[in-house]
Design a protein around this nucleic acid. Structure first.
Lengths: 227, 227
DNA sequence: CTGCTATGTCTACAACCGTAGACCTGATGG
DNA sequence: CCATCAGGTCTACGGTTGTAGACATAGCAG
């Protein structure tokens, strides 16, 4: 364990006294820990250690573990590159991306993992709820449009979260060993059911009132994409 | 706090020394605690206290907290009354039941809640995975039938878990305030997509190879239905 | 009534947790 | 060169956790 100097997390540049960089290192370490073991499972000492810093400095910078978690949630749910305005492409890309990202244990930094492993704690759940509501909620609702857009949007989030849960957290056998293409196909069917829901008194299949808020579709990639 | 006598949990019968009844009381209390606050959140002392018993007796009976959790998982995922052999009825009933049970905070004893709030702990997640695999996994697979039955079955579990998560644990606004009937309708569409998936090279919509394992469909109701 | 055993309880320990206050230190402006 | 203050660390406290071993008692067999 040679993490005495701050900045041992990413770059061995051994910058000595840089508040912004230290804060960033703590935030990265916290996101990693919280996503891996959840809010309750991650200790302040562990987060601080992986950032090459003492535990007290974390509380100095963020006030408390809870506030630190709030910032991590905000960062993790920050707007990413959006799939696009086309709803068919949205469906296809969401399905294939979900099937791909839930496959290996390589990149454990997904906000859904953070949510799933931290939601047991009611305080953390409230923070997550606020984060979703602030960032992704209305955005996905706008992307979907149509009747019950908000409900369908959160159902989409539910579906994604459930797949993350069963495939990566609980590691249920069939989903774990599932062929990625097969899974993506079924996911596409499911998501399409939400994107273009069958009308109850159906006559034609795909006439759905188009919405006017496709302008805010593609947003910027987050600044943390440089990491 | 007047829980000195064992048996303070359910019946005030004040049975003095009954190993089976005490074990049952502990099991009930543990299921309640684990489901409410999760594996990590529930303490052995709390579980024991709500059963009117000391903490050490819990470990005396179950060996450890982990083994106690394993028994609770086994009981919580025990086979319940099954919806029936008819696949359309299965779809409709699953959707409406899910929409109804996730609505109020009345009965907090659902196995999905137990899973969601405990899955952060890897040991608990493994126990849950085993429990699902042993009880519900192959059962739902048999109910569905057709191509990729196992994957579709676990996708159904994923969907249910996701709805529980977003509606009751994270308490996302649109799903929380959603009209129960509206939610049930969208859920029915989603579940039907899994029960009767659209063929990829589609010509007719609902010709799906029927399977031969509809015999094991309806199983017994669990003995804990008396609780 | 006398023992014996199952049934429970009491005390305690070692390891964590989050966090508060006092203390140190190194780079920088004068 | 020296003072200053932001940037970091050290020590510690009260609390909780899971669990181990020694001890107590109720209820029944003889």
């Amino acid at each position: 364990m040679s993490h005495n100097a701050p900045g041992a997390g990413k770059s061995p540049g051994t910058r000595r006294r840089d508040a912004a960089a230290t804060r960033e290192a703590i935030l990265r370490s916290a996101q990693e820990s919280f996503t891996r073991v959840g809010y309750d499972g991650a200790g302040v000492r562990e987060v601080a250690g992986n950032a090459g810093v003492t535990a007290m400095l974390v509380n100095r910078y963020f006030g408390s573990k809870e506030q630190l978690f709030a910032e991590v949630v905000d960062r993790s749910f920050a707007p990413r590159t959006v799939v696009g305005t086309d709803r068919e492409a949205l469906t296809e890309q969401t399905a294939s991306t979900l099937a791909a990202r839930t496959a290996s244990d390589a990149d454990d930094l997904d906000p859904f993992l953070l949510m799933l492993r931290s939601a047991a704690n009611p305080r953390a759940a409230e923070i997550i709820r606020a984060g979703i509501e602030r960032h992704v909620g209305s955005h996905v609702t706008g992307l979907l449009g149509g009747a019950d857009a908000a409900v369908r949007a959160e159902l989409l989030l539910s579906l994604i979260a459930g797949v993350w849960l069963m495939r990566r957290v609980v590691a249920t056998p069939a989903l774990s060993e599932a062929d990625e293409e097969t899974l993506a196909r079924h996911l596409r069917d499911l998501i399409w059911t939400l994107v273009d829901p069958p009308t109850d008194s159906d006559e034609s299949t795909d006439l759905d009132p188009p919405t006017d808020l496709d302008a805010e579709a593609d947003v910027t990639a987050a600044d943390d994409a440089a990491g």
